[in-house]
């Protein structure tokens, strides 16, 4: 059995990135986010990033640390804390540019990039202010007759959202970059992976390929190595977001994080304690993986 060895580290991955890149981040809100890769981004000197995400603390942290030029999102939420306070500050202070999409439009933009077509049509956005405040979105007329037999329907043309790199987090993976999710929802992680030139996947545990069935049915093996460039074994990587069945969201830590949006002093203390340290030190401090 020949399985390639794509094992790598967060530091190696982030050292390949350049200022101004477009980075897609998998997960959903404060759920199964590749946070160890996000933390490595925070430790780097990278800047002017475009971040594409069904956003949670990934967008909040990267905005607060001044890494983000533009955020592309369907929403930004911490789930148990509905509004992401650091992201709110960034929007209200005008320090981040926004492409604020309907959730379904974001799916279609990623799908279009994954399929290598320039756009996909949809109704979402028609009649709303989304098209007024973001004039970059164009309409497209169907070449086929409309439902009344007349002129073809006019629809929103959602442009492909091409990513330089995608980060996703899976419960289990093998060294070849095949990945398995064990919670209820893959979210758009497969689309993120395929919309990107390169995709790096962190995982709770690297297992032998033949062991995937021990953890879930083959329907859970939704990330194939065709989609991934590298795999990082990092138990606790998704902390403080949830990663069931391996661990729940660290609600106490999330509250502590959210509270740091109140003052620069609070953020500086949080950053010094949790972010200006190595991932190993972070994991020891928060005690998820032990």
């Amino acid at each position: 059995m020949a399985i390639p060895d794509k094992r790598t580290t967060e530091a190696e991955v982030v050292s390949r990135l350049r200022d101004g890149m477009t980075i897609g981040i998998g997960g959903w809100g404060s759920r199964r986010k590749p946070m160890s890769l996000v933390r490595e981004l925070l430790r780097s000197d990278l800047k002017d990033l475009t971040v594409v995400s069904y956003g949670g603390p990934d967008i909040g942290l990267l905005c607060r640390a001044g890494k983000v030029k533009r955020a592309v999102y369907g929403f930004v939420s911490l789930d148990s804390i509905p509004l992401e306070p650091h992201f709110r500050n960034a929007r209200q202070n005008g320090t981040v540019e926004a492409t604020e999409l309907d959730e379904g439009m974001l799916l279609l933009g990623l799908q279009a990039a994954a399929w290598r077509v320039p756009f996909l049509p949809c109704r979402a956005g028609m009649g709303t202010d989304l098209l007024r405040v973001m004039p970059q979105f164009e309409m497209v007329r169907s070449p086929y007759p409309g439902p009344d037999g007349g002129e073809g329907e006019e629809l929103v043309a959602v442009p492909a959202i091409e990513l330089d790199v995608a980060f996703i987090h899976m419960n289990r993976a093998d060294q070849g970059g095949n990945g398995q999710f064990l919670n209820q929802d893959l979210y758009m992680d497969d689309l993120m992976a395929m919309a990107a030139k390169e995709c790096f996947m962190s995982t709770e545990q690297i297992i032998p390929t033949e062991d995937f069935p021990k953890y879930g049915s083959f329907h859970t093996q939704r990330i194939s190595r065709l989609m991934t460039t590298g795999v990082i074994e990092r138990p606790g990587a998704a902390h403080f977001t949830e990663c069931p069945p391996d661990y729940a969201r660290d609600e106490a830590f999330q509250k502590e994080y959210a509270a740091t949006a109140k003052s620069d002093e609070a953020w500086d203390a949080f950053k010094a304690k949790y972010l200006d340290v190595t991932e190993d030190e972070y994991q020891k401090l928060v005690g998820v993986a032990s």
């Binding site: 028609m126 709303t128 405040v133």
Partner: peptide, 26 residues
């Protein structure tokens, strides 16, 4: 549900458009 004030630099950022455009037209 997106924000209060001018969208380009809102007085209060809320959820964003989220699912509302797609829901209401579909």
């Amino acid at each position: 549900i997106a924000c209060i004030g001018d969208w380009h630099q809102p007085r209060s950022q809320l959820l964003g458009f989220r699912g509302a455009p797609g829901n209401t037209i579909n």
